[in-house]
Nucleic acid binder design. Sequence first.
DNA 1: ACCCAGGTGGCCC
DNA 2: GGGCCACATGGG
Length: 223
Amino acid sequence: MKWEDKDINSYLMEIYSLLLNEFGKQNWWPADSKFEVCVGAILTQMTSWKNVEKAINNLKNENLLKLEKITQLNQKRLEDLIKPSGFYKQKARRLKRFSNYIYKNYGCLETFFKSKETSQLREELLQIKGIGEETVDSILLYGGDKLTFVIDAYTKRIFKGLEIEIGKNYEEIKAWFEKELPRNLEIYKEFHALIVELGKRYCKTEPECEKCPINYLCEESKV
DNA sequence: ACCCAGGTGGCCC
DNA sequence: GGGCCACATGGG
């Protein structure tokens, strides 16, 4: 099969269905609140989810997983609690910066999410040091139910192997997905989660293309 | 003892 | 706009 034979968006949905069928619904993001999604999004930067869970549980056990609590929490104490998630000094500062910003300017996340259009929310959060493109899109999509597609290292790695140019940088790749995918929250949420699951299993730095369920569409597997 | 994980900012060119 | 580096813990 060739990409040109059919519309690209049909192929993308084919991949989506195949992954959904293969791995099942991922139900991202696992969290009890919008704020927990934000904290998780920051803590999982370059870090396995297992380690993030430990950090989140530490905060939960102390009843500190709340916007206002984080703004009040002693810096050292915060660092100590999130230590398992790695880069803990940096991440403690990032959590503080994000929480202070939302708390001072909006009081709560709900108000922030309702304050303006998605692209404006995105630009605003990107101004906060430590909130980059993937983190902001995760926060908006999974925390705010905003229609914005998340690109991560696996997405780039996997789709670079497919015989099609999807973009050079984050913004371009994101725009490509948003052009080709139906404008549907559920699909955005599940597709990104499924891509991560696929990446974790078969497309690490040492890819296992023979086993990968989408390898029949992939350049890498033909080498 | 390696290698890597659901990135980001700073610095360089 | 891209390439390289520090940031740090825990699991394979």
